[in-house]
């Protein structure tokens, strides 16, 4: 069963910049899909359209069988949560506790249940001991974990991560990736939007976007090995795959391999 169904979706900013052109894709329940693309490929526009922050100009979006419209947007937001890129710009509460509570207060969850959920999900993202802390006492990674707890506490069925790890240090990134894995294992539908190949590698499926069009949508392994598609969308192969690719292309002698690896490390 599909959790998200998108059909012939198009969106243009200010009638000039075409961000999305006839995009059709589906995300199954419990699946982890990565939308991969370079800056300006339309991936963040797609995320904003799914959560109803932008209105589709052409095409339809269905979440759990319900078509997104002005009438249904509030119900759909109860099913789809989103974690944005900048951890500072999504911290609404004065403390961690208040921030996790914000969505629950909006959903009119009774106070006793709210307290239970806050504590449960704060523990789940290892932020329980920080519940009374103010945002300025937290690192970027910790703030992002609070944002995740806030969405988890709302018990949405889909969580979109819109470049949620791009402003974090390596440790913070690793932690967020481990939560994404756990979420998928728990049956939550996960959509990550990124240009980071290392983030994409763990997902079930990858959709490559370029200039608002889908270039390829396939199993992660198949997309990540497809050098041609990745090059077309200004993305690079993962380093081990790049090495593998080089070795497969007639680099047989030791000297040739050494020279190839040296060139590869020079290019970062």
């Amino acid at each position: 069963m599909n959790m998200i169904d998108i059909e012939n979706l198009s969106f243009t900013y200010g009638g000039k910049v075409e961000a999305l052109k006839n995009v059709s894709l589906c995300v199954k329940k419990g699946e982890w899909v990565t939308i991969l693309g370079h800056n300006g490929s339309g991936k963040s526009t797609l995320a904003k359209l799914i959560v109803g922050l932008l209105k589709p100009q052409k095409g339809t979006i269905r979440v759990d069988g319900v078509e997104l419209s002005e009438r249904t947007v509030h119900d759909i937001r109860k099913k789809v949560g989103i974690v944005f890129q900048n951890p500072d710009n999504q911290f609404v509460g004065v403390t961690v506790r208040d921030d996790i509570a914000f969505g629950l207060e909006n959903l009119r969850i009774p106070r006793e249940e709210m307290i239970e959920r806050i504590e449960h999900y704060a523990k789940r993202v290892d932020m329980y001991s920080y519940l009374n802390k103010e945002p300025q006492a937290l690192s970027g990674g910790q703030k992002q974990r609070v944002a995740i707890a806030g969405i988890l506490a709302m018990r949405t069925e889909v969580i979109i991560f819109d470049e949620a790890t791009s402003m974090l240090d390596p440790d913070g990134r690793k932690r967020i990736l481990s939560y994404m894995r756990k979420l998928r294992d728990d049956g939550v539908t996960v959509v990550t939007i990124t240009h980071d190949m290392r983030e994409a590698v763990q997902s079930d499926r990858i959709v490559v976007l370029k200039d608002g069009e889908i270039l390829k949508a396939d199993k992660s392994e198949d997309v990540l090995k497809d050098k041609e598609t990745l090059e077309k969308s200004n993305l690079e192969l993962l380093l081990p795959l790049e090495v593998l690719h080089g070795l497969e292309h007639k680099k047989s002698t030791n000297e040739e391999i050494k020279e190839f690896l040296w060139q590869l490390s020079l290019n970062g």
């Binding site: 904003k48 509030h74 937001r77 710009n89 609404v92 208040d98 969505g103 909006n106």
Partner: peptide, 26 residues
């Protein structure tokens, strides 16, 4: 820029101005 991002974050967390909400603190 920040207020725009914050408004998006609040909206997607089901905030509707003027709508009744329950409260954590009493």
């Amino acid at each position: 820029q920040r207020s725009d991002d914050l408004a998006n974050a609040m909206e997607t967390r089901s905030f509707v101005p003027g709508q009744k909400r329950t409260r954590l603190h009493i």
